[in-house]
Every structure is written in C-alpha cells, then in structure tokens.
Design a protein around this nucleic acid. Structure first.
Lengths: 245, 245
DNA sequence: TTGAAAGTTTGGTCGTACCAAGGAGCCATC
DNA sequence: GATGGCTCCTTGGTACGACCAAACTTTCAA
C-alpha cells in the first residue's frame, strides 16, 4: 500500500482541511466526558496515532492545538497532562496576548481602570448584600492584612487576598477568575512599587475604611473608599516608573 | 551530513525545550515591530525553514502556535495572514474554551450575571458622567431601536448596539471588547428566544427608561431600569429552553 | 533494602515524499 | 484585445521513517 493509497483510505469524511481538527475534537470530547481522566497523562503519541489511525505528524499537531486551548498541560519533555477546563484555563490561554497588549501605551492603565470599575461594583454590592459569612471572611482578611503591615512581602499578598474576598462574595465563579487575572497581569507592575511599613499602614487603613463602610451598609461610602484607595495606589505605581498615561 | 550531525550543528543556544518556541518568539517580535506588515501574508513554510534554519516540522508547529495565539490568521489552505494583536484578538483566542464552559450547568447564567453586574456599573457611570456626545449617541441608538420594533431581526441588532454604546462611554478599549464577548457568547442563546413586536416594544421601553434615567442623572434609577430590563429578558430566555439554573 | 546501571519508552526534530487546491502564465477562440 | 480554459508551479496538509536525548522502568548488585 503506497502512501497515497493509505492517505485516500484514511479518512473519507468531510473534505474540510485539517485532519488534526477531527482528532482534536474527539480527544476534547473524551476529556470532557471524563473518558480521559483529569490530571492523568495523555496516551503516548505513538499510541494515539494507532487509535486514530493517523500519522504522528497529525497527532502532534492535534496535541499542540489541545495544549494551546489549555485542555492539556504540555511541558517540554513530559507526557501531556489532561486538564479539565475551568475558568482558570480560559484565563491562562489568554495570558500571552494580554501581556503583549499591556506593553502598548496605556495598556496597563486601561486594565487598571477596568479593575477599579469592577471593584467599585463589587464593594457596592457587598455593602448592599454581603452575608454574615462574607463579612466574617472580610474581617479575617483585614486582620491578616493588619498583622502584615511590618512585612511588605506578606502585606502585598494579604492585600491581594483582601480584595480577593470581594470577588468571591457574588458567588459567581467568573469573578474570582477575573481577580486572578488582575492579580497576575497587574502584579508585575505592582511589585515594582516602593513599599514601606508607612505605606502599608496607609493602605491598611483604606482597607479598613472599605470594610467599615460595607459593615455599615453604605454603598456610596464603600465605593468612595475603594476609589480613593486604588487611585492612591495607582499614583504610587505611576510615580515609581512614571511613564504610563 | 547525516541527520544527527545537522541536528547538533543547528542550534547550540539554550537547551530549553522546543525549538519552535524560539521561532515563535522571533516571528512574534517581527510582527509587533512591524517588520512583518499587518495583513500581509506570512512567507511560505519552505521559505521560513530556510530563514530560521529549521525543519518544516518545527516551522509548522511555530505557525500553528502563532495561529492559536491569534497573531496570524491561518485558514486551511491559504497563506497565513499576519494580524497585529488587539483586544479583539485576545477575545478570539479565549472563545474556544469559553464555549466549553458555557455548556456546563450554570455557565450561561454565570456569564449573564456578570454582564448584569458590568452593565449596572456602566449605566451608573453613564448617569453620573456621560458627556453631551455620549448622550447623543445613546439617543441615536435608542431611535434606531425604536424604528426596528416591527422587525425582530433588526430589533435584536439595534438592541445590541444600544447596549454597546454604554460600553463605549468609559473610553476604555477593554469595555467594547467585553461587550463583543458578551454579544458573541450570549447571542447563540439569545437568538433562540421567542420574539415578537410586542416583546420588542417592551424591551424598547426598557431602553427608553434607562436612557431617561441617564439623562436625568439618576444612577439609582438607571441601574434599577437596567436590572429590570435584563432580568426580564433573562426570564424569557430561560423559559424558551428552560434548563439553566 | 536501596541505589546505580542498563534497557526501554517517548517527545522533539529532521528529511523526504506525495497529494490536492490555489495561483500564475499561456494559448486558442471569439 | 478580451475571455475562457488549460497547463504548470507553488504551497499547505499529511505520511513515513529515522535518530537523539531525556524520562521512565527494570534489573541487579552491594
């Protein structure tokens, strides 16, 4: 059987371009259906080429596509690990491009602005409808933040965590994802900001003000406190490596 | 020169995994720097393999990666077209995964909820700080929407456009992108909704109420009108193919 | 029991070959 | 001279086989 004969016999289905796409679709479906277990390793490429009666070329292309979609985690010399998609997967797959966009003028500023926008809504809602449990978690995060004032490193992470609680209050899985997005895309810029216990103290007080306003069920005050907080922080970031906007 | 000899001589640089990555990086940089012009065709694969002194296998993998990142537009049998990244590119590259997520229980609901959240903030801000020009555009979009009440097809698009104006008011390129995202991911579900001039009429009135509230600089009223509007629409969508949530 | 050596698998890369569809050039016909 | 084919070339899609190096397994001796 010559090459061309084999090729003809291989896949008499639709003429539409890539054969790899077909395999991608099938593997994807197997991942979603759980036929291929989460966190397990994908079968070897030579194995896959038998299962799908395709050449390794095609299989490899399919695997690459799957990897780019985030459905499998393909480190250089290791077997690809299957990963059921979650919102974080989506975030991951968009990361590359966003990083490029942030390099453009105003990119970081635009992103930060959108964050302010989102968190304004978040604190308003928190002030309106945060439950007992939400308040408790906020309080906890606030305390952790206060305890870290002396340690800028730890202050930063508790800072992020405090804001993170805000994103969890709506009980919508999209929001925590958005929070991670902001954290991962903005923090490279944030981390350059000069830090000191004095500044941490100021930031802590801002957090406290936000918390208090939420506790007092005052959306306007909460929003105002949040805006003040973030704008101030932004100023600090800007002056640290003043170029944006 | 045997295969292995050639291989050894090829690229003595960093040992880090894939050679394709290196090519991806270089091409990407060339695209960003404008060295490879936007909307022009990428050189042929056989050409690229000479330029980068790599096998076609590697070149193809690089091209595939670039395509998945949205930096080039690779249709099946055509030369890939170079495309400078914009926010829409990012949106595009995330589309696949999101579609999967939407199939999960509550996925659409979660997305819709986030939309309500965003638009609530949007109308509040519009009511607070929309400029003369913004108002004019809103008015225009509203008029177009009214004129389309009798034509459900056109009503839908003017509906989307009206909401779209809201996203443009902040003058932040991220927001229109978010709007496109909502539009493209939600509309498949929306389009199944039963439509009629009567319903269109109701929706139009909602739009009008939002517009009026913005005009009167009343954030609370605007937000309330928006929420009522979207919640009602959501009910209609739900009852049409009642499963979500 | 354990740790190192030997053997096997597997991903990464290369080269070559063929097909089919797009595209360029050529020619006869109108 | 314009137009509709009809070649021939280019190019992307796919296949196969080979080889390396790193990862994984098994083996076996201390």
């Amino acid at each position: 059987m010559s090459d061309q004969e084999r090729q003809k016999a291989a896949d008499p289905h639709v003429s539409s371009g890539r054969a790899a796409d077909s395999i991608v679709a099938r593997i994807q479906q197997q991942i979603l259906s759980g036929e291929l277990e989460d966190k397990a390793a994908l079968p070897s490429e030579r194995d896959l080429m038998e299962r799908f009666a395709a050449s390794r070329t095609v299989v490899r292309e399919a695997v690459a596509t799957l990897a780019s979609r985030g459905l499998i985690d393909a480190k250089p010399r290791f077997r690809p690990i299957i990963r059921k998609p979650g919102y974080d997967t989506a975030l991951n797959s968009i990361g590359n491009i966003v990083e490029l966009l942030l390099k453009e003028t105003g990119g970081v500023a635009a992103l930060f602005e959108s964050r302010v926008f989102v968190e304004r809504g978040l604190v308003r809602d928190a002030a309106t409808s945060a439950g007992r449990e939400d308040i408790a978690r906020l309080k906890e995060a606030l305390a952790a933040n206060r305890d870290a004032i002396g340690d800028s490193q730890r202050f930063f992470s508790t800072d992020v965590a405090f804001h993170g609680v805000l994103y969890e209050i709506p009980r919508n899985p999209i929001f925590p994802t958005v929070h991670s997005a902001y954290a991962s895309w903005l923090s490279p810029h944030w981390s350059r900001m000069l830090r000191s216990p004095e500044r941490n103290q100021v930031n802590y007080l801002s957090h406290e003000a936000i918390y208090t306003a939420i506790l007092e069920r005052d959306p306007d005050a909460a929003e105002a406190a949040l805006v003040t907080h973030l704008r101030t922080a932004w100023e600090h970031v800007r002056e640290t490596f003043g170029l944006e906007h």
